[in-house]
Design a protein around this nucleic acid. Structure first.
Lengths: 335, 335
DNA sequence: TTGTACGCGTTATCAT
DNA sequence: ATGATAACGCGTACAA
């Protein structure tokens, strides 16, 4: 392995010329160009990106912060990001916040110290202080939020239309004959779960189903308790349809419902959210809202790369639209 | 944000002294030390890791290559790695091989150019040329293989005892009264799937069950075909127990078997491999071999960090031992 | 104990 | 079109 110095030595040309061939490629004769490239090949030239980063200020590295990397939704997004930026010669560096705003801040600090060219982040549930945005602006490091974002202006964000996705899911349940619907909500500290709840409510009102706050439940993540709560609710209100905030919770609910002796979809119909691969592995396969995680990753990646050569930071918002996937869990059995 | 130059200016001390306080910390008086640290705090000092990396040759970055990041097993391993190295001040950079040896080589190249301090890799199914090891040795970049590794000597590896895990799974099925067992194999290009197959065979022989090559099936990943194959096999050979190479395939098989009208575990008992979170979400929950993905990540991380200050490369092998998790899918129903 | 000065491998500016 | 040289920010051998 060798550097430009070695090529200079071998060809008798100057460092500057070598560098020019390897970068701009302009202002240099075709002849010397090929000489340099041949020598580079022969010597197995490998640029030292650290040195280039120090000198140029561009590290060709994009930092990513997610709550948990081993969460199928986030790892699929990361997959999308990696593929897109990788194709463009960038590497990704990853940190996890584990839903802690302290760790999130720490990760951003690290990224700044590493001179990343841009940052992609899906914020933690705790996050409420976004003063780090000023610092990043000073350092001229663009940042793009994906999926989970702060509720403030003048940011770049790639999000999913959670509101409309929830609306579609609920509407579908109603069109399948549902009259008594409930919604199992996610963590309402996150705006996206609030949006899903709002979408549920909107569809209920649109179709003139009675809606009250007690049509929205939050799980305790304690099987015995949740079973009891669901049982009471279903019996008291004749629940026939449930829209659940996410596929994982949906499968959890599915199993509880089955254990209570109800048949799905005959007695109760279910729709989840996210289209995780597990959603087709259970019986019955669950209907869900496809959240196109990889697409989100790609769009976020594209957005951050475009931001790199912006002189003035602009705001940006892309909303990915939902797609309803109808599977067994919500199909009315035609007699 | 500022660098050591700013601190030097503010304190009137030399760059060297500042650097010493911030690094070695030795050979400097307590008084100036505190002066420097105070100034650093006041000025919001952030070391430029790129510059430090160029000068010292240590980037504080560990490169990771996995086939697919959105594979729960690998993302859990990465989680383990990230947590361990993060605690030690290292960052992780990730690339995917997508089972292509070309992309794998490319990723290694990139990592070398980025001056990563060490590399962790789980090789692709295609990989058969490991000449890059020489290059890394030259560059003094340690490499540790995890889970999937080349079958050569003098490497560092953190693997799982696939052979014994498969043996335990098979033994368990036999102890539950199984007499006619089959094994659904994974990609036999990978040594770990070969080991699982060998473990199955060994247990069969140990317990004097008739074993032949046709007791090992490979799936076509085509639902209609696989259904037919399984149906034939089960009927012809009175199959009562199936050991599947991994949890995902196991759930796939589970659904086929259920669709054929067999009851699990009454008619057929199943054991998977991996203990993915989905294994508890299906009905019945599937018994499996816990592969302790996070532990594997942590051990691999520990191993690579220890390798960093080795003068002479040594070989190393850690084998994580399996744990059988018995769930409904393999429980004999006591009458 | 502290300061001076050089070098890490590039890129960029200014000459030629 | 090409070359000489400074600079990026830090670490360290050497001098004081």
């Amino acid at each position: 392995m060798s550097g430009i110095k070695d090529i200079a030595k071998k060809t008798g040309l100057s460092l500057a010329t070598i560098s020019r061939v390897l970068n701009n490629s302009t202002l240099v004769s075709e002849k010397t160009k090929s000489i340099v490239l041949n020598a580079a090949q022969a010597l197995d030239y490998q640029p030292n990106l650290t040195a280039a980063a120090l000198r140029s200020g561009k590290s060709k590295i994009i930092g990513i912060i997610v709550p948990e990397i081993n969460n199928p939704f986030f790892s699929s997004i990361i997959n999308g990001i990696e593929q897109y930026v990788g194709k463009n010669g960038y590497s990704i560096i990853i940190a996890q916040s584990h839903e802690s705003k302290k760790k999130e801040r720490h990760a951003i600090q690290s990224f700044v110290k590493l001179n990343v060219d841009g940052i992609l982040v899906s914020i933690s549930k705790e996050s409420n202080d976004f003063s780090f945005l000023d610092k990043l602006k000073q350092e001229k490091i663009p940042i793009v939020f994906f999926d989970r974002k702060p509720q403030i202006d003048n940011i770049k964000e790639v999000v999913f239309d959670d509101y409309y996705g929830a609306f579609m899911a609920t509407e579908h349940l109603i069109q399948q004959g549902g009259n008594h619907l409930i919604h199992i909500a996610g963590d309402l500290n996150l705006s996206l779960y609030k949006d899903r709840k709002r979408g549920f409510q909107a569809a209920m009102e649109r179709y003139q189903k009675s809606y009250a706050e007690n049509h929205v439940l939050e799980l305790k993540k304690n099987s015995a308790q949740d079973t009891q709560i669901l049982k009471d609710h279903i019996q008291k209100n004749n629940v026939d349809s449930i829209f659940v905030n996410g596929d994982e919770d949906c499968i959890y609910v599915l199993n509880i419902i089955k254990s209570l002796g109800y048949k799905i979809p005959r007695d109760i119909r279910l729709v989840g959210f996210g289209n995780l691969s597990i959603s087709t592995l259970v019986q019955p396969p669950i209907s869900t809202i496809d959240q196109r995680a990889e697409d989100m990753g790609m769009v976020a990646a594209k957005t951050i790369l475009q931001s790199l050569d912006e002189k003035q930071p602009t705001s940006f918002k892309e909303v990915l639209s939902p797609k309803l996937l109808i599977r067994e869990s919500s199909k009315v059995i035609s007699s």
